[in-house]
Simulated scan of single mutants.
Amino acid sequence: MTTTFTVPPELSASEPPEVRGLARDGVRLLVARARGPVRHTTFAALPAALRHGDLVVVNTSDTEPAAVDGHRADGTPVTVHVSGPAPDQLHVVELRTPDGHRVTDGAAGEGIALPCGVVATLLTGHPDPRVVSGSRLWRARIPVAGGLRPWLAEVGRPIRYPYVPRPWPLDAYRTVYARAEAEFGSAEMPSAGRPFTPAVLQALHARGIGVARVVLHTGVSSLEAGEAPLPERYRVPEETADAVNATRAAGGRIVAVGTTTTRALETVAAPGGRVRAAAGWTHLVLGPGRPARVVDGLVTGWHEPGASHLSLLEAVAGPRLVTRAYAAALELGYRWHEFGDSCLLLPAQSVRRPG
């Protein structure tokens, strides 16, 4: 990752834009193309920034109420963030203080008392099971009669971080196209898609721009600087693979909404860019050694310095365009994080090779 910058604290969006009197699609949109100046508009104008024949691909993973309050053995209050499932009927969790800071002294074997008599037991560090103390993430056993998700629906709430001082309902953390599924969804909202509204989707259709869907269930977003993304569950349906391949064959662009959608599509992309339908766990890490094969453009929010997401952005758009976009966003006070503003990165379209 080559893009370096500092985000002033006042640029962290601390509440949904609706609280500021804006519609979801009223947030700012920075459009950065490989050729020409950076443009500033609103998200409602996204369809006008794309072309007839393009394909927009969204992630329909739903957001879980994945934060639960509990107590450690000495009575200290703690918040457990349920990141998602792990093998052997276990779950990956993160421990936070009630004001949102990392707990750094968790230990294997520790029990966390949770609502309704549930006790979560930390077993091993994650992703390295050899870690037995101080891990950021843990593989944990959370035995709940009737299943984890109904229990979370009763006692959980959306995950939030210190830059969001007030709680907001789960609907504030859902995209308009999210679909609840039988399996555990995302620990946090795939937030690049939050500004979409039915009006934006209708305008895309009217302009001859297709919309296709994938699923990637994302875990907690609180990765440390330089930490690689962890394996995540994904699904690319056959109809989406067909739409992507047909769009590419006709010369249209594949515009992914968010790093999650990009990871799912690139997981199933052959070296020539042709994609196939598939589902499972993705371990793909995009970066200098593995540039994008199929994604031509990216709708994204704004990421913290050192985040692995920036390497993914550069794998799609190149360091120069990403650096130019971030410099312009900082200069003009764009807002960061899940309730913040948006960016559309449109690098020069690569020469198509047979897929």
Results as ranks from 00 to 15, higher is better:
288 P>L: 05
119 V>R: 10
246 A>C: 02
94 E>G: 01
66 A>P: 09
194 R>N: 02
52 H>E: 15
224 E>R: 12
144 V>M: 06
294 V>E: 07
240 T>W: 06
23 A>C: 05
93 V>M: 09
86 A>S: 11
72 R>T: 01
144 V>I: 06
121 T>P: 06
348 A>Y: 00
331 E>L: 13
329 A>S: 15
267 T>I: 14
58 V>A: 14
77 P>I: 02
88 D>E: 11
67 A>E: 13
24 R>F: 08
71 H>I: 02
309 H>D: 15
72 R>M: 07
233 R>W: 08
35 R>E: 15
16 P>S: 09
323 T>Y: 01
71 H>K: 03
26 G>R: 15
103 V>D: 09
223 L>S: 08
112 I>A: 04
218 T>Y: 00
298 L>G: 11
207 R>P: 00
257 V>R: 00
133 S>W: 00
232 E>D: 10
46 L>W: 08
305 P>Y: 11
354 P>T: 03
29 L>E: 08
97 T>L: 06
119 V>E: 08
66 A>F: 02
223 L>W: 06
120 A>N: 05
290 R>H: 10
46 L>A: 11
169 P>S: 13
147 G>Y: 05
95 L>W: 00
303 H>Q: 11
230 L>R: 12
334 Y>W: 04
53 G>S: 10
224 E>Q: 12
115 P>T: 06
336 W>I: 07
37 P>Y: 09
214 V>G: 00
189 M>Y: 01
101 H>Y: 06
89 Q>Y: 00
309 H>A: 13
231 P>F: 01
18 E>K: 00
248 R>V: 12
133 S>N: 01
130 R>K: 04
104 T>F: 01
34 A>D: 15
307 A>Q: 07
340 G>A: 12
67 A>N: 07
345 L>P: 14
167 P>E: 12
183 E>G: 10
92 V>S: 02
222 S>L: 11
326 Y>I: 12
